[in-house]
Every structure is written in structure tokens, then in C-alpha cells.
Amino acid sequence: MKTIVQFLIFPGFLFTAVVGLIASWIDRKVTARVQWRVGPPWYQPFVDMVKLLGKETIIPKGTSAVTFLTAPLVGLASVTLISMLLWLTLLNPGKGFIGDLIVVLYLSVIPAVSIIIGGFASRNPLASLGASREMKLVLGYELPFVLALLVPVIKAGGSIRLDEIVASQMATGATATSLSGVLALIVAIMCMQAKLTLVPFDLPEAETELMGGAYIEYSGPPLAVYKLTKHMFMFALPIFLVMTFMGGFGPSPISLILGLLKYVALLVIIVLIRNTNPRVRIDQAVRFFWGPMTLFAIVAVALAFLGW
């Protein structure tokens, strides 16, 4: 019972959805300001959601309706679970379990998988193209992302428990204060950009060439679920990086506020990267991740082993 409440309300679905939508507003507003525009009012993302929920759901002819409609839900559920795991660990220090870092790592691939399934299920050439790009992107960024996450693990003395990583950072300073930590953080931010499919790695949806890519056939409520997943991910993933690289935060008010400030800082970095870069091609993206990023991550891991 308690778990269900935690999953659905706090710190699971409802909480993450509200904060995620606010984060997406920050994204749109900062984007607008960068482009010298005024931007939407703060309630815009909520209105968008309500509107999408009220619209017709179209299921394309010849698709498997079950796959088509459940694909978005899979992504939503996994993002909710990530956020719940992270917040429970943050709010009750010492209550993690061995390997929750790895659980979060696996869960964070599932939204991408749900986009792939949905894209291929919608029986549209552009959606298939988007889905196949997403697949290549996943292959690209997973390796450097895992390598980068090895650095905080090594710093915490080989622990793969999130609460121990946070605790060891509280004791000895954040991972990102060391050389290896900074390198790994840069790699992780790049991978996060790709995980959130934001420009310059928004190849799967590429509005101008693929017209929405994997989402092209979705309308109404399923589209709302996809959008919500993306916004919630935009909240959960930076929190994950704050925990592993930037010292995390605890349940006391001051450290909560500090933690949120760190989160907003990461969010603004993401938005600025997104606004100052053009979209890359898929081969460039994969080369970027397998080349310089993996190299960076390996160097960071080596430095971490040497104690820098």
C-alpha cells in the first residue's frame, strides 16, 4: 500500500510530473529568451497536456493496437520508477539497496526502448527511421555513460549503492571537484543530452526532416504520455547526475534547496547546449560518442584509479 502511494503520488508519478512540466516550461522560456522572444506563460505545459488528453486517439490502419498504445506507458512507468528510487534514497539516507545504481542505469534505457517500440509499431516510414536512429543513438551513448558513472563508483570505494555514493561525497567533497570527476561529468552531460533527445542529438524526432520521427503517428493521449515521459525524464536524469557527480543532497531543508539549485544549474546547461548547437547527423553522433567521449571517459576512469 505504502509503495503504491509512493509510486503514484510522492515521490513518484504526480510529483515528478508536476516538477517535470515546470522544468519543461523553464526549458521553453529560457529558449525563448535566448532567441530574444517572450516565451509561453508558466502554465503552458499543463494546458498542453490537458488539451492532448482531450483529443482523439488515432490508431493507424494495420498496426497492432496493443503495442502501439502500451509502448508510451512502458516509458512512463520506468521514468516514474527512476524518480521514485532516486528520491527515496535522497530523503531516507542509508535506505538504498546494493546495486540500485545499476537498476537506475537499466531503467534509464527503457524510455528509449519505448520510443523504439512505438516508432516501429506505428507503421510509418518516417517513424521507423526515427526509431532506428534512436536505436543507433542508444548504442552510441550507453558505453561512455556507463564508463563515466564508473568514476563516482571508484571514488566511493567501489560501492554501487546510491546512498553510499552520496554519503561518501558528503564526507570527502563532490565527485566533480576532482579532475577525473569533471571529465566524467562533461561526458555524462553529453550523454544526458542524447538520452533526453535534445538538440544536437534530437535525431529521432528531428522536426524538420522526420516531422516528429517516432512520434509522427501518435495523437491525443498517447502523445501526451510520450511528452510527459520526456518532461519527467528531464527532471529525473539531472537529479541522478546531481547525486552521482555533484554531491547529492539530503532531507534537511538547506541541503534540499542547494540540491535543487544544482539541478536548475544542470537544466540551464542542457538548455544552453540545446540552443547553441545545430543538429548533427547520426553517423557524426555515433562517432562523437564512440570516439572523443569514450576516450574522455576512459581517461577519467584511469585518473580516478590513480586517485585524482
Binding site: 521553453r28 525563448a32 517572450v38 494546458v47 509522427i216 495523437s219
Partner: peptide
């Protein structure tokens, strides 16, 4: 026009 919540979308479904 994004002030009024208008967005240009790529797919007729949206």
C-alpha cells in the same frame, strides 16, 4: 506566437 501557446508542429496528427 509562442506567447499564446501556439507551436508549429511537424506532423498533422499532433
Amino acid at each position: 506566437i509562442e506567447r499564446f501557446g501556439m507551436l508549429l508542429v511537424g506532423s498533422a496528427r499532433h
